[in-house]
Design a protein around this nucleic acid. Structure first.
Length: 666
RNA sequence: GCCGAUGUAGCUCAGAUGGCCAGAGCAGGCGAUUUGUAAUCGUCAGGUCGUGGGUUCGAAUCCCACCAUCGGCUCCA
């Protein structure tokens, strides 16, 4: 009997195999269907090739294309095929890195003679990739010394750079060299005599296992993300295990496009960015302004309830203010250039509200009895964002933050943060978002100020509070502001995308820079701690997220036009108008349209406007004092409903900010 | 800011290789139609083809610069 080894499977069962057996052998032993489906394996938590030999005691899982890890392997191998196709079509092309990303993969190239990919090239490349797939080339792993690697990739400068930067790149690039048995080796995968790539792996056994992929777009990308290094040509693609899965993903992208707030903002006449004003500077049309007003009014009401006091501050201030706050030192690039007055005095548009609120704090002596002090303002700020970074309402140059600064004593900080987090989550839920996780951003490695001790205390306090909230917490290493760490609330929207919403930042610096103080119980002066927080973040951005989350069909309480009344004929207009008057008096946003075209056409227009309720009134309704209700999203209208019943329902729906409309199934 | 693409009427888009007065649908004005749940009919008006230069007998079309938008990169206090 040949020597045996034993491995365990994810379900806890054990399998005996001959010494020297590989992951593929294990899959074959379990069953022929698994052997056929297997793409890679996971051995003791590490994803490996099917050809990897097993050792006694290994915990092994077989990865098929339907597992997340299997899908990653699939995409990674597809990226190699992309690079191979490009080198076939552009002999002499240099290939840099080709990692897996959230929804697919990319590969960066430098083409000979500084050539560029065009969109039309994508289909040519795709066709070549299909050819390579049909050639069923095996992926063969090899391990080389650094020197052998350098000579193998002598004509691939990016590969050589990766090889020589051992240690500095290890976690950054999947192709990094690794230490095996005390010597540095680099691994390569060759899938034909013509193409070999530096890669950590693993890969699918053969290119024939690939095929359901699509190249999405070309883009420029700096080598290693560094503005000062060459810009490469990046091709983005995605790959799935089946045609159906790929198509489902493409449908998802269509859905995201359908919800694009920039398109809906135009269609629904909510806002625009007139060229005459300038990039990234929005104007809100009446309907968009109504949404915004309702959002802001509700926010104000909640802030009053939570013990905030309101402040108003100007849009610009002298340079000295921003010198004191540190903004000019750290973020002058992101500020609009100064205006210079006759006397040489410079004024800047404000990029943040905190210096102003701090001055309100400092306007007189403060006692510990007053703390925590909470100053709230819808503060408009201006930031000179790079032109290429602008994006609809989500990235603008002029925006309004629902901003507040809380000044408190050190021993109040934790309680304050805790109640704040509850407030934030409650508020976001009122707007229809309900799937959250938290992110803790720690000290930035380069740009930051303050003692390590202050940062540690602040970070740990935030961590404690975040954990207490019972949501998932992820770490964003080095993502904090220059003056302190932060917690941000991330929300998943209706189609599963995540958006950064609220931020809560701790700040020991600003009070110090401005020498803010309070008199304690001990009659001595103490320095307050400052908490910056914005719940919507920016009103503009939050509105954009709401529009996309609801696909433009905002809940009734937020809808700019809540009810449209359509008289069937001219002579029903007076009745329609009397209903309009009644509903308007009850605080609802109602409009009556005249009967100048067939009902179907008017219904259609109201539907396209995504009005929550269309009321149709005709002969029957005039006779019986009723209405016909066409609820947004419902398949059939409700006829002969009493106005009392409808108005009572909608008043409650609005009052409770419910997303459940009249007649909707519970 | 960098790479690539795009820019024709309020919106969505046609307008090979330069050559009659630059077209359509929707939206808008006017008129007719009086309509019971996603498009009534007719008619009119609307564009210095993103802007500024250039090439040409002639430019929406070719070249250059700039502006804006889109997709990425970088950035995001």
């Amino acid at each position: 009997m040949p020597p045996q080894l034993t491995v365990t499977l994810p379900d806890g069962s054990a399998r005996e195999l001959a010494v020297g057996a590989t992951v593929a052998d294990l899959a074959a032993q379990i069953g022929p269907r698994l052997a056929k489906a297997a793409l890679a394996g996971s051995v003791n938590g590490l994803v490996v090739d099917l050809t990897t030999p097993l050792s006694d005691g290994d915990a092994v899982a077989i990865l098929t294309p339907t597992t997340p890890e299997g899908r990653e392997v699939l995409r990674h191998s597809t990226a190699h095929v992309l690079a191979q196709a490009v080198t076939r079509l552009w002999p002499g092309a240099k290939y840099a890195i080709g990692p897996v990303i959230a929804d697919g993969f990319y590969y960066d190239f430098a083409l000979p003679d500084d050539a560029r990919f065009s969109d039309a090239d994508l289909s040519r490349i795709e066709a070549m990739m299909q050819t390579i797939v049909s050639e069923a080339q095996p992926f063969v792993r090899d391990e080389l010394s650094v020197d052998a690697g350098l000579s193998l990739f002598a004509d691939q400068p990016y590969k050589c750079e990766i090889i020589t930067s051992v240690g500095t790149l290890a976690d950054e690039v999947d192709a990094a060299p690794e230490l095996v048995g005390g010597t540095t080796v680099v691994s390569t995968y060759r899938n034909s005599p013509e193409f070999v790539d530096l890669c950590r792996g693993p890969h699918v056994p053969s290119t024939s296992r690939l095929g359901h992929f699509k190249l999405m777009r070309v883009a420029g990308a700096y080598w290693r993300g560094d503005v000062h290094r060459p810009q490469l040509q990046r091709i983005y693609g995605t790959a799935f295990e089946t045609k159906e899965a790929l198509e489902q993903h493409l449908t998802f992208l269509e859905e995201a496009k359908r919800r694009d707030h920039r398109v809906l903002g135009q269609e629904l006449d909510l806002f625009s960015f007139p060229d005459e004003i300038g990039p990234g500077l929005a104007v809100f049309h009446p309907k968009g302004a109504t949404i915004r007003r309702v959002m802001e009014d509700y926010s104000r009401k909640r802030h009053v309830e939570e013990g905030y006091e309101f402040a108003y501050t100007p849009h610009l201030a002298k340079a000295d203010l921003f010198k004191t706050s540190g903004h000019l030192e750290w973020y002058a690039d992101g500020m609009y250039p100064p205006m210079e007055l006759d006397d040489g005095q410079q004024y800047y548009l404000k990029p943040m509200n905190c210096p102003f609120h701090t001055l309100i704090y400092k306007s007189r002596q403060r006692s510990y009895r007053e703390l925590p002090l909470r100053f709230f303002e819808f503060g408009s700020v201006y930031r000179y964002e790079l032109s290429g970074a602008l994006h609809g309402l989500t990235r603008v140059r002029g925006m309004t933050q629902d901003d507040a600064h809380i000044f408190c004593a050190a021993d109040q900080m934790e309680d304050e943060l805790r109640s704040l987090l509850t407030f934030v989550l409650d508020l976001l839920r009122e707007f229809g978002l309900n799937d959250f996780y938290l992110e803790l951003s720690t000290r930035p490695p380069l740009k930051s100020v303050g003692s390590d001790e202050d940062w540690d205390v602040a970070t740990e306090t935030l961590r404690t509070v975040a954990i207490g909230a019972g949501l998932d917490l992820v770490l964003d290493e080095g993502g904090g502001a220059f003056y302190g760490p932060k917690i941000s609330v991330q929300a998943r929207d209706a189609i599963g995308r995540t958006h950064q919403m609220s931020t809560i930042q701790l700040d020991f610096q600003t009070p110090q820079r401005f020498e803010a103080e309070f008199v304690g119980k001990d009659n001595a002066k103490h320095r307050p701690i400052m908490i910056h927080r914005a719940l919507f973040g920016s009103v503009e951005r939050f509105m954009a997220i709401l529009i996309e989350h609801h696909a433009g069909a905002l809940p009734t309480w937020l809808a700019p036009e809540q009810i449209r009344i359509l008289p069937v004929r001219d002579d029903h207009f007076d009745y329609a108008h009397s209903i309009n008057k009644r509903l308007s008096r009850e605080g609802l946003r109602v409009r009556t349209e005249v009967a100048d075209e067939p009902l179907g056409g008017r219904i259609r227009r109201a539907k396209l406007d995504k009005v929550p309720y269309i009321l149709v009134v005709g002969d029957d309704d005039v006779a019986n004092g009723t209405i016909g209700i066409n609820t947004r999203g419902a398949s059939d209208p409700f006829r002969g409903i009493s106005i009392d019943e409808f108005s009572a329902f909608v008043e409650r729906e609005v009052d409770e900010r419910s997303i459940k409309q009249f007649g909707a199934e519970s």
